[in-house]
Amino acid sequence: MNAIETKGLSKHYGTKKALACLDLTVKDGELFALLGVNGAGKTTTIKLLSCLMAPSSGSACIYGHDILTHTHEARSLLATSPQETAVAPNLTTRENLELMAGIYGASLPQSKESAARMIAAFNMGEIENIKAKKLSGGWQRRLSIAMALISQPKLLFLDEPTLGLDVLARRELWSIIRGLKGKTTVILTTHYLEEAEALSDRIGILSHGMLSALGTAQELIAQSGAKNFEDAFITLAGGAVS
């Protein structure tokens, strides 16, 4: 079954079109990067697909559940890790993880078990009893992703997961994201093109609210006739390579 299927998905605010007729299919277990310059429609797409917003027209299904008519079922299959670190500041690492497990339906013992599992998987033992607000940016981001994964979602939205992180923390997160391949469908938005190139199975480029290109990094380079992925992106995103 496909993780995401959209047909003519559109969103407009008054006369401004934020997303126009998006036809997209993302396979189960695929790591799909959604790229575009600011205002291209990435955030709108993510908001629509994560059931935060209703489309103006068109449809979208998450594992066969329509986002408008079966919102609750769709939501129970997905999780998001927003761009800004989304943690409960006065709760410890462990409590944040237990909270998210509980919100996705785990019992108290199950939530404790899941939290312990994520702490081990993300090497967060040294920070498990520290309040989230006291953690460094890198640890907060790692916790944020662990919170998104604790419910074992089938679909995960990662919005700029490595923004503002140093190179070591970024590479550690890359390794975690790579580990999800095949197990969890990941929709990644990022402005770091090397990140999209290194991690993604396929890449979609949005430009002015429309999907202007779709394929693997190599396919996009070939399609644009550029020398590298950065030049390909600039060409396909509607810019000009000087």
């Binding site: 129970s76 999780a79 890790s81 927003p82 989304a86 998210m100 996705y104």
Partner: peptide
């Protein structure tokens, strides 16, 4: 934002 994409 995270909570609003959850089944709450």
């Amino acid at each position: 934002l995270r909570l609003r994409t959850s089944p709450l």
